[in-house]
Design a protein around this nucleic acid. Structure first.
Lengths: 188, 188
DNA sequence: GTCTATAGCTTGATAGAC
DNA sequence: GTCTATCAAGCTATAGAC
């Protein structure tokens, strides 16, 4: 008999799914309970801070995933273009080919003073900074590099929105293929 | 004395704001009541179908706004590039320079069978089709034109997500400036 | 057309047994 | 660590007076 009914990883996977699909307000404890197979009280045992705790942990975990698997290739060996292609591959699995939408989108609604929104903002800002580092290897100014990083993330977010709404994953795939140009290319 | 406490246009403006900011689930009747200055029962008098009705009307109105003001310049006089620049100007005011996020994003969360989501999907599909018409004037295949239209909308959505999350409107502005190239340009 | 008042349900969160 | 049972507060929606 297991000590826990569902192990930590699987629990967080399912939690992530619910928040991604329904957003923070839409992710009711009923839905979470159903998705995880745990009753309310069990969830509160694991997340004493309640729903907000759950969202924070899920966000933190996604951020680490992104950092370790997606952004790590950026400082590995190879030419800048090769490293960006590696990142594109990891992004593809991170977002399941465009079928997983981004927590930075789904958790970014609500009032400005929302606690979760601040975490979301820090997450995206850190992401921009990391991408800007690589873009700068393309021998452009810091300002241009930052712009390219922002543009790349805009394209990731936008293609994921389109994927979610009209269920067409073409834009996401094309965007990944164009990432080296977006981050390093001469035009723009 | 006015027959109505708030006129239709202003009511819908405020309703739109609430749905944009909080998403469908986050837009509670309390928030809506406070934002509009109308009590629950008054809202139900104007929208007999309740909250879902409100979201539908708001979506429908935004779609007409988009069609009349943003997409209309696309079939007016001038070169394709000029018409797209006109559209970019209208888009700028439609989204208040990036400060208004898009209903097609904020209302696209929730389960697949959600009624609102279907309206959202139809709205974005219609938008893609309209943009594809202009892109085809760039003497490309129908398939390429459709891709360019999807890419343009991806970029609009993505820059709006970035604007909402990190409060930087640069990507949105740059995207508008690049729209003629995105929709007509040779590369890609 | 707007209001007060309220019904009935769902929400996030807790208490306490096992 | 998980459960059943429960709470108060919030929710959407309705009834009926003016």
């Amino acid at each position: 008999m297991p000590i826990t009914k569902v192990n930590e990883e699987e629990l967080l996977d399912r939690l992530t799914d619910v928040f991604r699909t329904y957003g923070y307000d839409g992710a009711s404890l009923s839905k979470i309970s159903e998705a995880t197979g745990l009753q309310r009280a069990s969830l509160y045992h694991r997340f004493p801070g309640g729903k907000e705790d759950m969202a924070k942990v899920v966000l933190e975990r996604a951020g680490q995933w992104l950092f370790n698997r997606v952004l790590a290739p950026l400082s590995g060996p190879g030419t800048p273009a090769q490293r960006i292609r590696n990142m594109a591959n990891e992004l593809h699995s991170f977002y399941a080919g465009g079928q997983n939408c981004c927590l930075l989108d789904s958790l970014s609604f609500g009032s400005d003073d929302n606690a979760i929104r601040q975490h979301v903002q820090q997450g995206m800002s850190a992401w921009v900074n990391e991408l800007a580092k690589v873009a700068q290897e393309g021998r452009v100014s810091a300002k241009k590099a930052r712009q390219k990083a922002q543009d790349a993330i805009s394209q990731i977010q936008g293609t994921l929105v389109v994927a979610r709404v009209i269920k067409d994953y073409g834009p996401f795939e094309r965007m990944l293929a164009e990432l080296p140009t977006t981050l390093l290319g001469k035009q723009a």
